[in-house]
Every structure is written in structure tokens, then in C-alpha cells.
Design a protein around this nucleic acid. Structure first.
Lengths: 221, 221
DNA sequence: GTCTATATAATGATAGAC
DNA sequence: GTCTATCATTATATAGAC
């Protein structure tokens, strides 16, 4: 009721409210410990009472949704600013290198594993980028054309993030918050083979692809 | 105390005990709903009291460990029997096609996402297989050699499972228990682009690989 | 081996004072 | 906006009878 009055009274940035502080704390904790952290833990980290958290967001789910939309919005901002031809991994690395935005990356990765709505938006965004990037490469002659460009863009995106998620789950970094270090570990382990695969493929000839096209895409009656 | 007596009395297979039944029920439920299912739910599904479950396994963690070791052992058995040149995906599909072993596959996949000890054993096993399979292909001339065969075997394994896990998290099957159907969905979405990637790679020339080798593997001083 | 009853701890959420 | 106090639920786990 009185919030309008209060907002006019405050001359500072409208986002440095207690509510925003709570949301940022929640993102940091979700990123660091996963979505199982309790409302109590978030409240304690923020130095307020648990009741206040629920007062602001209604429920833990409400808090989650606010975090989701905020993280997605911020990642979109970063992507607008970033150079277009950077790969998703490079973009995330650069984001994570900044202390302020590292939790955003961790949060996004957590939600990818959880598979919610943010995960979909997140992936769709990178799929769209990949499609454009691939199309430019095909036009320039540096990338081979595909029989299904959309499917390839989606596959490469899922393949990249999926490999990273599983690799990090199997080799958990000492500090879960230091995403940049985690990313370095991933690249140290997989940089060479993934580059080999992208540049040379695995097979020496087309027989496997031809078999797939013949028996799966256009099966004999 | 009296269990030795009972086991001698029973002339049936030593694994069809109530304990084994409980374990199987737990695996089915873990596979279907994830590791957050309560001991209560498992007990109810098995038609016993929650206390009995804990009586047998000491704790929920004890139950988890017993399920882990059992699942790993069974998957190893299947792999021994299976034809050697089948891919991991084919193997799991064949396993999942059998009603009896489908929960094992689901359980293994869940534990991959959780990233525990079973996940490591599971992956290591498939990495070892991949390495042998790749070596045979290289010897036969059907597969290109790699500068780091071990790293490639690990990467391809992680890449395959990681892509599948993320794809399934983003496109959850109607029936989480029907792994075979889930796998068909995954292949329908990604079969073509993954086959293209394996046979042809993505790039039209070696410049990306050469750049990687020059600046990352052997960086200029 | 199996049960009932209970202890204990943690969670998300609410009520109401200030 | 923020708190204290409390509720209702759920979880794992234990004690002890049968």
C-alpha cells in the first residue's frame, strides 16, 4: 500500500531494494549449493528473517521464478553486448570471470540440469545463435552444410552444454562458485578431442552416414 | 542371528529374499521418480512398513549404496553378454527394451546426473569400451587416429551421455519409465546431426585444429 | 523379520505485533 | 517492511513388542 510512497522517497537506483538484495542472495546460494537450499539458509545469508523472504515472494517457488526471469534477462543483456562470433563457452567464461555475474552462470547451469522453463529459454536462445553462426559459416565456406540445419544447431548446442554439465558433475571443481576455473578444467580435459571431432569428424569415410540415410531416414519397405 | 538358519531352509534362489525384493522396488522407484523419493514411498510400494526398509539397510544411504552396487554389477553382466561392437546407446536400448532391466538403465542415468560413485564406475566402464572400440577402428582404418586416444575415448563417452541426459531433461518423455521410448525420441531429434558430425566433422578445413594446437597445446612464449 | 508407535529434525508457510 | 512465534507437514531414524 505504502510502497509507492517509499519508492518516490528513495532517490537511489530502483533495483537496489531489499527485495533485489534478497533475490541476488538467493541466486548466489542456488548457484553454489543447488536448488535444495532452504528459505531459512537464504534468509540467514541475507541477514533477514525467513518470514521476510516469503513475505516478498509469496513462496519459495515465487522466489525461484523471480530468480529465473532475472537470470535470463541478464544473460540476454550480456549476449547483446558480447561479440557475436564468440562461442557459448567463451561467452559464459567471460561472464563468469566477472565476480558479479559468476553466480548467474552457475544458476543457469543448475537450472539446465533441473530442466525447467528457464532451461528451455536458455537453450532456445543459444540454439538461435548457433543457427545464425552456422549459416554464416556455411555461406563463407568454412562450415559444411547440413541436411537439417535447425536440427544441427540444436544438437550442437545440447551437445556442448550436455558434455560440460556431465563432465563437471563427474569432476566437481574444488570451489563450485569458481565457474571460470571449472571451465578451464573442462577445456583442459576435452579441448583437444572436441576440436579434433569438429574439424575432422571421427570416421574416415561416409559409409556410416550413408547407412543412416538409407536405413533410418528412408527405410526400405 | 537366525538368518543363516533361514537361508539354509530356503531352497529357492538366494536372491529372491524380501531384502532383494525391497532393493528391486527401490531401484524401480528411484529410476522413475528420482532419488528424492521417501523411504515411506518405497515401503508402501513394496507393501511393507517403512521401519522394515531401514531395518534391512540401516539407512536410506545404505539402501542407495546397495542399489548402486547391484545396478553396476547387473550392467556389467549385460555388457559381457552383449555383442562387442554395439554402441553404448544400442546396449542401453536393448537393455531397456526388457521390462526387467529397464529400471536399471533409468537408475544409472539418474545417478549420472547426481554424479556419485556409481556414476564414475559407470562412465569409466564405458570409456574403457570406447577406447578399445576406437583402437580397433583405427587399426582397421575406419576411424581416424587421435593425438590423445584416451582423452578422445573419455570425451566421446561423456559427450554421448551428456547430450542424451540434457536432451531428455529438456524433452521429458511422457512415461519416465519407458526408456526405450525416450531413446527413440532422442534419436529422432539428434540422429542425423550426430551422424553427420561423426562422419564429416563440422569444419571444411583444419585451420581450427591447427590454431588449437599452436596456441593452446604449444603456446608461443 | 516384521510391525506399531514414537522421537527428532527440518522444511515451507502463516498470524499477528511493531 | 520486518520481526517473533508458531503451525502443519514431511523426512529419517529408533525403540521395543510380537
Amino acid at each position: 500500500m505504502r510502497s509507492a510512497l517509499r519508492s518516490t522517497k528513495s532517490g537511489r537506483s530502483p533495483d537496489i531494494t531489499a527485495r533485489a538484495h534478497l533475490r541476488d542472495t538467493a541466486i548466489a546460494l542456488f548457484s553454489h549449493e543447488g536448488f535444495r537450499v532452504s528459505v531459512r539458509a537464504i534468509a540467514e545469508a541475507a541477514g533477514v528473517s525467513p518470514a521476510l523472504v516469503l513475505h516478498h515472494f509469496g513462496s519459495k517457488d515465487g522466489l525461484r521464478q523471480e530468480c529465473d526471469t532475472f537470470v535470463l534477462a541478464r544473460i540476454r543483456e550480456y549476449k547483446e553486448d558480447a561479440v557475436r562470433r564468440s562461442t557459448p563457452g567463451e561467452l559464459l567464461s567471460r561472464m563468469a570471470a566477472m565476480d558479479e555475474s559468476a553466480p548467474l552462470v552457475g544458476y543457469a547451469l543448475r537450472s539446465l540440469q533441473a530442466g525447467g522453463e528457464l532451461a528451455h529459454s536458455f537453450i532456445e536462445h543459444f540454439v538461435a545463435d548457433a543457427e545464425e553462426w552456422l549459416a554464416q559459416g556455411v555461406a563463407a565456406g568454412t562450415i559444411r552444410p547440413s541436411l537439417d540445419e535447425k536440427a544441427r544447431a540444436r544438437y550442437l548446442t545440447i551437445q556442448g552444454f550436455g558434455s560440460m554439465l556431465l563432465d563437471l558433475a563427474l569432476n566437481p571443481p574444488a570451489d563450485p562458485g569458481d565457474f571460470a576455473a571449472a571451465m578451464r578444467g573442462y577445456l583442459a580435459r576435452n579441448g583437444l578431442p572436441s576440436t579434433e571431432l569438429l574439424t575432422q569428424g571421427l570416421m574416415t569415410d561416409r559409409t556410416m552416414l550413408d547407412a543412416y540415410l538409407l536405413y533410418v531416414v528412408d527405410p526400405p519397405a
